[in-house]
Design a protein around this nucleic acid. Structure first.
Lengths: 186, 186
DNA sequence: AGCCCGTGTTCGTCAAGTCGAACGGATCGG
DNA sequence: CCGATCCGTTCGACTTGACGAACACGGGCT
């Protein structure tokens, strides 16, 4: 998710997109959500800054989770480079924690520790639809990602990419160590 | 996410929880988020219905995704030393990795990348019951685990310990880097 | 044509969120 | 002991979002 972008335009686009997906009119959605249609009109126009209650009721009426309305659609491949991560420094300790990925319910995440050595290019077949792979490089360098657009990762880098298409792992240095979290939808 | 629950109390609790996690004061958080501290005070008291912009800026200042603030919050010590892997090499998958932990359904796992420096012992208070923390050391050395029985981990080591009791993180070397997977039951 | 729904927009009014200041309390240091 | 400096809360003034009514537009019908 983009942590700095103003969510105004995102909400406007998401509301219109989800409403058209359901196939109801602006008036009808406003009625179901229990808000004035003028309010909804302004929201879809990108004008305005809804309260949480207002946006929540719209999410309920649309049958989509709240976060769907405020977060931009996640790109298939997401990379957070070491040091470029949006983090927050704690005052009380020399502690910097970066939230790389938020786990959804109704999905299982298996944690793997993977050692790789150069020369062995592994082509992984597609897993079940909707699966996502999260990779954090501990040591060494890897080239990974979808077979069509591999990414090079260095220590501390994080990447998430779809696991339901063919993808690759290739170590670029000896004794490469990565943490791999495989996410399977229920 | 609960589609029907009123988000007011949830937001209040989440704001206070996340703020205390970061370890800053209400005044300081308000300053960083660029909002009046009176507004934040009312929000944490459960009074009020923040606008999206207000809550968004708080999420940015806290370093947590937006959804963490609106969604309601929804384990003995196990250590696997590097090289001492329990032989369960994944055969179903097409890579040679060590399956450290199998994710259960109906639990969310958030992935963090954490940088630590020595000298600062961080005491984390208990999280919600049933939560588990998984830690893999990428670089450096850490002493972590329940406050009553800390463990020393080296690069490649993996440990899982309960997160619903008081626990500690302490770096034993400068520039220590760990991958932390926090598991919250639904 | 005229009419009646439906769509989504714009307008004033009212309530509510946000702001800044002032407040009481706690802690530290001269 | 008392000023200084934090903390978090409460108060009034201002700004803004939410509401309802009136609006213009388009299509289907008699």
């Amino acid at each position: 998710m983009d942590r700095t972008a103003p969510p105004l335009a995102t909400i406007a686009a998401a509301l219109r997109r989800e409403r058209e997906r359901v196939g109801i009119s602006l008036t009808e959605l406003a009625r179901r959500a229990g808000i004035a249609k003028s309010t909804l009109s302004q929201l879809e126009a990108g004008t305005g800054n809804p309260s949480v209650e207002t946006l929540w009721s719209l999410g309920v009426a649309l049958g989509v989770p709240f976060s769907r309305l405020v977060e931009p659609p996640t790109p298939p491949v997401r990379v957070i480079r070491a040091g470029e991560a949006p983090g927050i420094r704690s005052e009380q300790a020399d502690f910097t924690g970066i939230l790389l990925s938020v786990g959804s319910r109704h999905a299982r995440r298996d944690i793997y520790l993977v050692e790789l050595d150069p020369g062995a290019l592994r082509n992984a077949q597609a897993h079940i639809p909707g699966s996502v792979e999260h990779m954090i490089v501990a040591r060494g360098r890897v080239r990974t990602g979808p077979a069509s657009e591999p990414i090079e990762l260095r220590p501390g880098d994080y990447a998430a990419f779809p696991g339901d298409v063919e993808h690759v792992y290739e170590a670029l240095e000896p004794d490469t160590l990565v943490v791999l979290v495989m996410e399977h939808p229920d």
